[in-house]
Amino acid sequence: MALQPWPQLRQGHKAHPVPSLQYHLRARGHTVVVDGDFGPKTDTAVRAFQKQKNLIVDGIAGPRTWQALVTTVRRGDEGDAVRSAQEELQARNLSGDPSKAPAVDGDFGPQTEKAVRNWQQAIHDVDESAMLVDGIVGGQTWQSLISGMHLG
């Protein structure tokens, strides 16, 4: 099985992966609250980002918008893009123990890197043999996380 497609998010959507969208918009300088609710302010930020990147300005976070929006993060990085990765990894923590996944603190340290490697290995073994297991959250890893693959 291949990677799941990027989701199509628009105003009115709530919950996963809206927080990731909001964190990425913040990482790109847009002022939005990360509340998991794709409301008017998130819509405005998506449209502004689309215009800035010469994309179709429709307020829908689809494949082209996601691909332009996500940024590669790795150990040592800090900020909202890291928080997005941590949020995604926390969402897949089915143990009931939040300490079993990285804290959403915006600091890409050893626990986040280990969780990313574990996620990549699981995707590599089950679904996508081309998935690199490198502990770096790049395009393919972002797509696997944001698309909701294997989400509880």
Rank of each mutant, 00 (worst) to 15 (best):
G76C: 04
E128M: 01
S95Y: 09
P98N: 03
F108M: 09
N118H: 13
V70M: 06
R92T: 11
G109D: 15
D107I: 15
R92S: 05
K100Q: 15
E128I: 02
V104A: 00
K114D: 04
T71W: 00
S99I: 12
A103Q: 13
A68I: 01
D77R: 03
V137S: 08
L89I: 11
L69F: 06
A101P: 14
K114N: 05
V133N: 00
E87R: 01
A103N: 05
Q86K: 08
V116M: 04
R74G: 10
G109P: 10
A91R: 12
L69W: 01
A103S: 12
G138A: 15
E78H: 09
G76S: 12
W119N: 03
Q111T: 11
G135T: 00
R83A: 05
V137K: 07
E88R: 08
L89H: 10
R92W: 07
R74K: 14
Q140R: 14
L94T: 15
A115T: 09
Q140E: 08
Q121L: 13
G106P: 01
L69N: 04
A91V: 04
R92N: 06
W119R: 00
R83H: 02
S95I: 14
A91T: 07
D107E: 08
A115M: 10
N93Y: 05
W119Y: 15
I136D: 02
A68R: 09
A91N: 08
Q121Y: 06
A81Y: 05
K100C: 09
G106Y: 05
A115D: 05
A115K: 08
D127R: 10
D125L: 10
G106W: 07
Q86G: 03
D80R: 04
P98M: 03
L94W: 09
Q90V: 04
I136A: 03
D125F: 06
V82Y: 02
G138V: 01
S99K: 07
Q111Y: 05
